[in-house]
Amino acid sequence: MSQVASGAEIVEGPRLRARSMVSGFPSKYGYPLVGIMILLAVWWFGGWLIATNDDLSAFADFAPGPTFAALIDLIRSGDLTQTIVSSLFRVGAGLLWGFAIGVPVGILIGYVLVAMRVANVPFQFLRMISPLAWMPIAVLAFETWDSAIIFLIVMATVWPIMFSTSHGVKRIDPSWFKVAKNLGASGTQMVHRIILPAIMSDVMAGVRLAVGVAWVVLVPAEYLGVTSGLGYAINDARDTLAYDTLAAIVLVIGVIGYLLDTVCGVLVSRFNWHQKD
């Protein structure tokens, strides 16, 4: 028995070492660092090309050096915090509304076949309209610019949340409903104890998609009238030819978008009850 075990150890040893190298420090931090370094190198090289070209030298401030200098100035002045807070508030409010509408409607169309049949065509039609196409209507319909922007974000977030939720409901094992009914579950208990926990990972996957779309829609949406937010800051930097600030804001948008996606990814894992290998 011990011979077999030790034999297996000899065979498995190199494999285990190889696996630990793949799943250890390099895969967690090393590879992403290499990716970031490549991106920075491409950016630096692009900046160098622009700076050395007489026709483009006016845009030399897009290079990493001036961008990071502008970023530090933005942080020190406190302007960046205010800008980020304004944008996050709008995205948060839009997501909240998207969640509040998308989850219950998603449950309804996932659970009730007739509701799905009735809603399918209109919802697919509305989903295909770019959220930005609602801009003129939003401006007319809402009193404040903030409300109009939040409406555009709702129009971007509600569909992924709704369809993910409905997909999650359809995937629920029908025997769970039978068991819960048998155990005496009321309608509310069925939703609270069975349906919501069962679909939560699908809902969070929808939220993750929604956050991505909302973040993309936010910048053009903030070109609308408002005097705060990342979209406004980009527009303002372009108008004042402050390309270093413009590049710094683009950098911030990317970093925050990445962080939001990471948080959503953690939440998806947190609510995912499917057995992991």
Partner: peptide, 12 residues
């Protein structure tokens, strides 16, 4: 109460 062919436990 009824028991089915599948245990149908709630995995969460």
């Amino acid at each position: 109460n009824m028991m089915f062919q599948k245990a149908s436990l709630f995995p969460w």
